[in-house]
Structure formats: structure tokens, C-alpha cells
Simulated scan of single mutants.
Amino acid sequence: MLKNRLLLALLCIAALLYVAVPRLPVTEDGLAGWFAIAWIVLALMAVGGNMAAIMYLPKRKRMVQKAKLAQVKRVRLRQYQ
């Protein structure tokens, strides 16, 4: 479920980049050029964040499962004491 959401976010960001990059005035002087560069950097950071989340998703799942297992063990130990 989470992986599907991350892939959808990547797809939306790719579509935004595909449409916006040719129209952004990157080579202009002044505020327009700075805005275009900042927008591209922000979009690339969003892509990087989603890619990192996709790559580290299985590891995070294992950590969550281990934490849940440890919690269940603690509850069982309390029941026996």
C-alpha cells in the first residue's frame, strides 16, 4: 500500500517535471531564474526522498515487525509473572 503511494508520487513528480522544465526560464537573470532553479531543486529533492523511501521500505518493515514481536513478548512475560 505504501509502496503504491510512493510510486504514484514519483509518477506525479515526473509528470510535473516533464511539463514544467521546458517552460521554466532557467537562463534568465533575476528573480525568475532563481525561482526556476529553486523549483527544479525542490522537485529533485522530492524525487530523491521518494526513491529513498522505496529503497528502505523493506528494512523499515522488518524493524517494525521486530518491535511488535518484542512488545508481544513483554506482554506475555507480564502475564506469567
Rank of each mutant, 00 (worst) to 15 (best):
Y80K: 13
L69H: 10
L17H: 00
R60A: 13
L6D: 05
A70P: 04
V19K: 09
L17A: 06
V72S: 11
R76W: 03
L44M: 13
A67H: 12
N4Q: 13
K59R: 13
W39P: 02
V26K: 07
I13M: 12
Q81P: 08
L6Q: 02
R5M: 05
V26Q: 12
I54K: 02
V75T: 03
V26E: 09
L6R: 00
L24S: 00
K61Y: 15
M63W: 13
Q71Y: 08
L6E: 04
L17E: 11
D29L: 09
Q79M: 10
A43P: 02
Y56H: 14
V72A: 12
L57M: 06
V64Q: 12
Y80T: 15
I40V: 15
M1S: 07
A43N: 00
W39I: 11
L2T: 13
G48R: 02
Q71A: 14
N4H: 12
Y18N: 10
A15T: 12
P58C: 10
M55L: 15
L57R: 00
V72Y: 11
A36M: 03
A67N: 08
R74Y: 09
L11R: 10
Y80I: 13
G33C: 03
L8D: 11
I40K: 00
A20N: 08
I37G: 01
A15R: 02
Y80L: 14
V19G: 10
I54M: 08
L17W: 02
F35H: 05
V72P: 01
I40W: 04
K61E: 15
K59S: 14
L42R: 08
M1K: 04
M51N: 04
R23N: 11
A20R: 06
N4C: 12
I54A: 04
L10K: 00
L11H: 10
K66I: 03
A15V: 12
A32Q: 08
L10D: 00
A20Y: 08
A32K: 02
M1G: 12
A14W: 07
G49M: 00
